[in-house]
């Protein structure tokens, strides 16, 4: 028999000296073991925890995800992990429980494992570690770089990407498309008769129109690889890899109708009397010095010439057509 008394240490001393939370619950989730670490960070004494249901021991609520995990371990007898990344603070445990220190809820990583008691009962061992330090490091990193990066790459009016971000992204996207030999689509978008809109409705309304168009365009994107940026004034640009020509053309039409459906009055825009956009699209597999952006811009120019509120698509490679002419 493997009795602990035969050994040189008392198991309880070891549990109570551990620098992590250890708790055992039985099949009805009643607490059977509650070590010093949890007692300290929950401010609940062992005597007040023992033989009570785990979720009722605390005065604050325990996260539903933790309770589901505990239930799953008790039912299926499979171990479960709860990461800090996805749960942060599932249990009401605090750092700085000493008097005159500010209490902050502790970030936790938790493991729940099925164990069997010597009486053959199904129990669960809950281990909790403090992951505050790793979170703090991450938070610091994030707050610094996220704010900096966000300011540097976001257009302050529309909250979509700015020109600087677009320039860098475009270069990478073209290089990637060349290397992988996959198609890349560039959509240049311009609000029709925007100057007259500004003159007639005023700058505040103009800014608002730009915002609404930006968000209508953005709402059409669902893939992580796609971006929409404010190119300048009332001009926008979208970069989307991997679209077949047909799909790209359909998408351009979707952009146009998304803005059309905003139905924003613009009485200086004939014949539509509402805000519309023109879209220039160029799509293809870039090679050597192909310039998708210039082509998309030329397509946009044609869309304007042909009466606005429309999409024009130009092929990336026109050499053959030139030869035919």
């Amino acid at each position: 028999m493997n009795t602990l008394s035969a050994k040189r240490f008392d198991m309880e001393d070891i549990f109570n000296s551990l620098n992590l939370g250890v708790c055992v619950v039985d099949a009805d989730s009643k607490v059977l073991l509650w070590n010093n670490w949890i007692a300290k960070h929950s401010d609940i004494k062992e005597t007040d925890a023992l033989n009570r249901q785990f979720e009722n021991v605390f005065s604050e609520s325990v996260s539903p995800a933790f309770l589901t995990a505990l239930k799953n371990t008790l039912t299926h007898r499979l171990p479960v992990v709860l990461s800090t990344a996805l749960h942060r603070t599932p249990l009401p445990l605090y750092n700085g429980c000493e008097a005159n220190q500010q209490q902050t809820r502790m970030y936790q990583s938790i493991t729940i494992t099925p164990i069997q008691s010597q009486l053959n009962e199904s129990c669960c061992l809950i281990q909790i570690t403090d992951s505050s330090t790793s979170i703090k490091r991450e938070k610091m990193l994030r707050s610094h770089s996220e704010i900096l990066k966000k300011e540097a790459t976001t257009d302050s009016l529309t909250d979509i990407c700015n020109r600087r971000f677009f320039d860098a992204h475009y270069e990478m996207a073209v290089a990637e498309a060349k290397r992988q030999k996959h198609p890349l689509s560039i959509f240049m978008v311009d609000i029709d008769f925007f100057k007259s809109y500004n003159d007639y409705y005023g700058h505040i309304a103009g800014d608002n129109a730009i915002k609404q168009v930006a968000s209508a365009l953005k709402s059409q994107l669902s893939r992580a690889t796609d971006i929409v940026a404010r190119y300048g004034g009332e001009e926008f640009v979208l970069v989307m890899p991997h679209l077949p020509q047909k799909v790209a053309e359909q998408f351009a039409e979707k952009l146009r109708s998304a803005v059309f459906n905003l139905a924003m009055p613009h009485i200086k825009s004939r014949p539509f009397n509402q805000i519309t956009i023109s879209v220039g699209l160029c799509t293809g597999i870039p090679e050597n010095d192909d310039n998708l952006l210039n082509k998309a811009d030329a397509a946009l120019y044609q869309a304007k010439l042909k009466g606005r509120n429309r999409c024009i698509c130009l092929p990336l490679c026109e050499t053959e057509e030139y030869l035919e002419q």
Partner: peptide
């Protein structure tokens, strides 16, 4: 890079 710090734990879960 920041995500990578959590990748291990979150993917385990």
């Amino acid at each position: 890079e920041e995500l990578a710090e959590f990748e291990h734990e979150a993917m385990c879960e």
